[in-house]
């Protein structure tokens, strides 16, 4: 486990120092993304000016929701930056490089790219959560843990959807739609989803476990629900690894000669 964490940390440092080569671009992307997220809060501010509450959700809950989601999504695309590119990498036979190396191929593929703007999401997420108020050591610790479980769910979900490329060939369109659906469902108050749609947000599109349930936990902690979220994150991560390995048996090399410097 320690070896894997060290490996990931080395890649994060390398990717960051590589991004810092273009310092102005780095700063503009991080600041731009943080502003981009912040403008969405303006929409919700306008919305709640007109309708102070939607099924128990208020502006502070939206700030917490966007806080947890932005950190989770930001970490997923900053640390595991290739997660959304898996369908393209598989379809074009670009896994060869990772398969020939001793480290776990899936982890290596995921960490070998970083989305620079994702650090803007992480920065915004922390600011949004703090701005929601009602802070304490326990709440901040919970925020950190739930952001990490959210990151695991986001990444695993993308790996699962991306692995469809082993069977479908071109799964880019499906991957983009599935990713968009998860983000879309998770950025709205959980109270607007009812019946079968609510079930969907706990299963096929796990938006509730990434955003809605974490917000409920920061409002009122329930150890059983918390353990449920952690168990789901561990379970979906294990399932993603298993499905990727199963898919690898069907992988066909692209015979591409590439230079990685």
């Amino acid at each position: 486990m320690g070896g894997y964490l060290g490996f990931m940390w080395t890649y994060v440092k390398l990717n960051l120092s590589s991004a810092m080569e273009y310092r102005a671009a780095f700063v503009s992307q991080v600041v731009g993304m943080a502003l981009n997220d912040a403008i969405m809060i303006v929409f919700w501010w306008l919305f709640f000016l007109r309708f102070p509450e939607v099924g128990g959700w208020q502006l502070a809950d939206i700030l917490r929701l966007w806080g947890v989601l932005a950190v989770a999504f930001g970490l997923a695309t900053a640390v595991f930056g290739n997660c959304s590119r898996l369908p393209a990498l598989i379809a074009s036979g670009q896994l060869d490089y990772y398969l020939a190396l001793p480290k776990d191929a899936l982890l290596h593929v995921l960490v070998s790219r970083m989305s620079v703007s994702a650090w803007g999401d992480v920065t915004f997420g922390v600011v949004a959560f703090v701005a929601a108020g009602d802070l304490g050591v326990a709440t901040m610790a919970l925020f950190l843990v739930l952001s990490l479980t959210g990151c695991a769910i986001f990444t695993a979900y993308h790996v699962l959807v991306g692995s469809l490329a082993f069977w479908m060939g071109n799964a880019e369109a499906v991957g983009t739609q599935a990713s968009g659906a998860l983000v879309n469902f998770s950025t709205y108050p959980g109270s607007i989803f009812r019946g079968w749609v609510k079930i969907l947000t706990f299963t096929l599109i796990p938006a509730a476990l990434v955003g809605h349930v974490p917000v409920a936990l920061t409002r009122r902690f329930d150890p059983l629900v918390f353990l449920g979220v952690v168990a789901f994150a561990v379970g979906i991560a294990a399932l993603a690894v298993a499905v990727f390995r199963l898919g690898l048996r069907r992988y066909e090399s692209g015979n591409r000669v590439t230079l990685r410097a």
Binding site: M33, L35, N36, S117
Partner: peptide
């Protein structure tokens, strides 16, 4: 050097 920030902000 980078115009992505402008487009994100414009879109939002």
């Amino acid at each position: 050097e980078d115009t992505y920030a402008f487009i994100w902000i414009y879109q939002k």
